[in-house]
Amino acid sequence: MSSLHRFANPARFSRLSRAVLPWTAAGTTLLMAVGLYLGLVVSPADYQQGETVRIMYVHVPAAWMAMGCYTSLALASAAALIWKHPLADLAAQETAPIGACFTAIALATGALWGQPMWGTWWVWDARLTSVLVLLFLYLGYIALVNAFDDPQRGARAGAILALVGWVNVPIIKFSVDWWNTLHQPASISRLDAPAIHPSMLTPLLLMALAFLLLFITLLLMRIRSRLIDRRIQVMQQREIEG
């Protein structure tokens, strides 16, 4: 763990992230281009779903990232509460809007897929509902962090809320599953071989990797801009105080 603390230094983070950013940005572009080409052009249409199956290449990675971002939000919040690293606070706060966007993308693409497949934009099915609740958890976090005049207080309250939400997410998931289910069962994370043909699995995994890199790129850019913003504020303060 002590090796991780080395990266909590804002100056070191700035230097490192400047070096890493071009690579993650290039990797995102490359993987997304290849993944989209394979997914939208090369991969076959589904024998049941036809061309609409291609929505999956955006929908599924977005849904994975929606959940992954919440875990990363909770981990960053825990780090912020335990070690009081200012960078962990920033990472948590900047993860939330990205995660909320991924969640919204997953919901929107799901609705677009549901209209031709299920004949309706929205059904109160278990997975859709828990993703919707996840979106509300993100929005609640963002609202709480921004509701205080003292940013430090907002960061602390948000961190506790993120952890409370993280404990609750499995409970909500379980209870919503109990409540109703219509969504097809998971087809990739099964113990036997994946029930999806390699011609579809390859672009899906490429897209998932592209989304992960996109998240890292956006997160680094957002944290960097917050650090720069803070430095500008300090400089302005000094100028005023003369």
Binding site: V133, G140, A143, L144, A147, F148, D149, L161, G165, V176
Partner: peptide
């Protein structure tokens, strides 16, 4: 917090599902 009353509902209601 500002507008704490509305905020509480936004925070707590999703958890009460």
């Amino acid at each position: 917090a500002r507008r704490a009353g509305v905020l509480v509902s936004l925070l707590v209601l999703p958890l009460t599902v």
